[in-house]
């Protein structure tokens, strides 16, 4: 049987919100170590990889590995009923044909419980190699969100280039061109405000802004976002969840015609 109790249930709600615009049906894989998700959007352009360690939970029991096949629009409807300070409990039998969800609130004394039918989802698993990337940039997630949102008015493609000058986001469209340059900045006392750029060699790649904007739905999960790029490879956009896990997005580049 599988049983997990998360004092800060809101973390799980934010994870659901961070992927539900990209994919409809997902398997949540449960093992003795973690809950994890790997799924692609229907166009196979973007991949989401989520991991939440068992150490994030107050109680975690998973007798044998199982996959919980969920329809995210339905899960999202249920999580709308979760209060901000609720504790979340998940339970499933080894047969994994339904999932029990409970939202508990000690202060108000309420317990809401839901039983959700699970589905068998055929999912293609991609083998994502553990690569050393040529550029790694850490920046405030709110700043990344603002940049990719603002650049949408200029065009639908964003050129991301990492050079000695800094990290540059550019978009070109009918009305003209916009560039936003982020320089390394470690002046602030708060580490989450820092911009750090590790560059082994310059990289310049083009990406669809629509997808970059989908990914920023993970912003509430983490004050910082990590961008990793290598020439001719999909970009990795990682939102660490404290020391307990992450939501990572992989996005295939747009090629020059």
């Amino acid at each position: 049987m599988f049983e997990a109790r998360l004092a800060n249930g809101n973390i799980f709600k934010m994870i659901v919100e961070s992927i539900r615009e990209l994919v409809v049906d997902v398997n949540i894989d449960c093992s003795t170590e973690e809950l994890s998700i790997q799924c692609m959007d229907s166009a196979h352009v973007a991949l989401v990889s989520m991991s939440l360690s068992q150490s994030a939970f107050d109680h975690f029991r998973c007798d044998r590995s199982l996959s919980l096949g969920l329809n995210l629009p339905n899960v999202s409807k249920i999580f709308k009923m979760m209060g901000r300070d609720d504790t979340m409990v998940l339970k499933a039998e080894d047969s994994a044909d339904k999932l029990m969800l409970m939202f508990e609130n000690d202060k108000s004394g309420t317990i809401a419980d839901f039983e959700l039918k699970l589905m068998a989802i055929e999912a293609e698993q991609l083998g994502v190699p553990d690569t050393a990337y040529k550029c790694s940039i850490s920046m405030p997630s709110s700043e990344f969100q603002r940049i990719v949102r603002d650049l949408q008015v200029m065009g639908d493609t964003c050129k991301i280039s990492c050079t000695k000058e800094g990290l540059k986001f550019s978009a070109t469209g009918q009305i003209g061109t916009g560039n936003i340059l982020m320089r390394q900045n470690v002046a602030s006392e708060k580490e989450e405000d820092h911009v750090t750029i590790d560059m082994e060699e310059p990289v310049e790649l083009n990406f669809a802004l629509r997808y970059l904007n989908f990914f920023t739905k993970a912003t509430p999960l983490s004050p910082t976002v990590i961008l990793k790029m290598s020439p001719g490879l999909p970009i990795v956009i990682e939102y660490p969840i404290e020391q307990l896990g992450h939501v990572k997005y992989y996005l295939a580049p747009k090629m020059e015609e």
Binding site: M40, A43, H44, V45, A46, L47, E124, Q125, L126, G127, V128, P129, G155, D156, T157, T172, N206, A208, L233, P234, Y250, A252, P253, K254, M255, E256, E257
Partner: peptide
């Protein structure tokens, strides 16, 4: 602008 690549062009199935 530009042709959108897919992830299968980079990653194999596991």
């Amino acid at each position: 602008s530009g042709l959108q690549a897919t992830l299968q062009q980079y990653f194999g199935y596991s």
